[in-house]
Nucleic acid binder design. Sequence first.
DNA 1: TAGATTCGAGACACCTTGCCTCGTAAAGGA
DNA 2: TCCTTTACGAGGCAAGGTGTCTCGAATCTA
Lengths: 211, 211
Amino acid sequence: MYRYAGVVSDSDRTGAAPGRPRSEAARQAVLEAVDDMLVEIGYAAMTMKGIAQRAGVGRQTVYRWWATKAEILLEASSGDADHELASPPRADPADDLAGFLTALATFLTVSPAGLGYRALLGEAQHDPAVRDLVRDADLLGRAARTVLDRVRPHAPAMPEARLASAQLTGPVVALVLETGQPLPATMLAEHARILISAWRNDRPADGNGVS
Amino acid sequence: MYRYAGVVSDSDRTGAAPGRPRSEAARQAVLEAVDDMLVEIGYAAMTMKGIAQRAGVGRQTVYRWWATKAEILLEASSGDADHELASPPRADPADDLAGFLTALATFLTVSPAGLGYRALLGEAQHDPAVRDLVRDADLLGRAARTVLDRVRPHAPAMPEARLASAQLTGPVVALVLETGQPLPATMLAEHARILISAWRNDRPADGNGVS
DNA sequence: TAGATTCGAGACACCTTGCCTCGTAAAGGA
DNA sequence: TCCTTTACGAGGCAAGGTGTCTCGAATCTA
């Protein structure tokens, strides 16, 4: 069962495959077909059969390189994700976070790669293998960490990366998954402002608060 | 472990249905079968055919009352959700939030109803109809709002309910969806503490922060 | 009791899946 | 250059799910 891993770099391919692919054209055609079909007909209506037809490729060729729809989708999405989730640095930390959140919200609601990621995350709830795939790829986490590293100097109370990343992206991701709708820019900005306000001030929780 | 909670109220059914259900037994059998099968074989392996067999019911009977697997799942899960997500009030606001977050994490990773909700949220990424179903049910949002209302008096800077709810539950939901693993209690507690710290202090964002 | 409607059961056509086999075309090695 | 190797497109195949339809029987309502 030799096939490309998708997430793996090009150089990794040289190793195990008994026969190298004769043409990258077939692989590319499949990846492009998946990208297009995801937007046009949606994940549910997308079948291995349909993908092969749309790509002008034999069914067996698809099965040769990918075991499931999810694997194709991950390979088709992961490349674009890094690029689309990169937000330019801003001087003000809250603006920096807000910029990233805007890119994230656009990614999740507009971009084909983002639609692919959502479909993948959906499939991960049904199939443990896909869940591992998504967790290991960690598309959102890696992108978030880039921004968080920029902001950290201005936010002494920022928690460990895993929690900080979840606090930053979680609300946006969850809201989009639950509603499917884009989020208002003001809400994103306020979320960023509140997070920064919490991460700046390192006063530990005191026990009171009861009236 | 049977329940009758449907999102659809009893009275709703009177409208369109040409005849009321003769026995609730058939409906109950289906709901219980779905609950069991979700844990035993998972959502993906669950078929309408299998549900009917497991429930000892004709296939048409299933299709008569629910159009899709998702509808059955929502009805089977939503009843338990309210109960399982209810956390007892605590004197300290941070503890109150942490208690809710613990219940939420347990719900999402252990409870059959929580597994159902995750499967539903997954399906929502593939099927717009399910997305609307999940959004309208708003299981997590309603539960969160109960806690947030208790905490609000101690948190003058808490944002509007929608954002506050997302900030509270989003990180937990997203993390569970992406990894499938339970979250450490310390992380939940720290998340609660950080949120409270931000919501307590209503200092508006100042423009500085640049070194 | 009489009519209406749901019930379990199963047949049906249609579709997708994953594997298999063709004959063909294009790589790489000698 | 020739020849071996391997992927390639195409399509057949069994298995299984879907959603609709039809039956006779059970059961509720009037």
